[in-house]
Amino acid sequence: MILTDREIRISLETGTIEVDPSPQSGAFSSTSLDLTLADSLSVFKKSQPGVEITVDPSGPHYSFRDAMAALSTAMTIPEDGHPLRPGQLVLGWTKERVSLKPQARLAARVEGKSSLARLGLAIHVTAPTIHAGFTGQIQLEIINHGPVPIRLRPGMAVCQLIFESTLGVPEKGYQGQFSGQASLLPG
């Protein structure tokens, strides 16, 4: 079930959901919470004519870090924004750090905003799930599917988070079968 604004507020008050910085009143809708864009981007370099590069993510020597070092550069969005070209993909992050407690029976989905979708702006590439127990700023795969550049500005409401209750607690949050086993080192 999707949480309503009232349930999201209660969860924020009780600490089962943490959002930092705290959302403004205008960030809520009936069943979602808007999040804003942080000022860091990872921008993919333009390909060079005649140079063919292939990423092999399931290959034995694949390293995401090495691949991104070769393919992208980090940048801070200037005050006047960063124009995202048609067809361009950049990685961004939400300004807000979100935390879902493992035992809170909550997960979430990050989705785009219809106002930006109308311009062709997508904020994820088929990976919207925020799993139970997640902590951090949410990475966004931002791509401009529209015909003209779209200016990205720090602090713009760029996506929305939809919270859902889960049926039960995930195995990792349940002591269950390992309760009392002495072979596991005490913390």
Binding site: F178, Q181, S183, L184, L185, P186, G187
Partner: peptide
């Protein structure tokens, strides 16, 4: 096994 520390187990 030795890489994990568990509280409350």
């Amino acid at each position: 096994n030795g890489q994990l520390r568990v509280n409350g187990a």
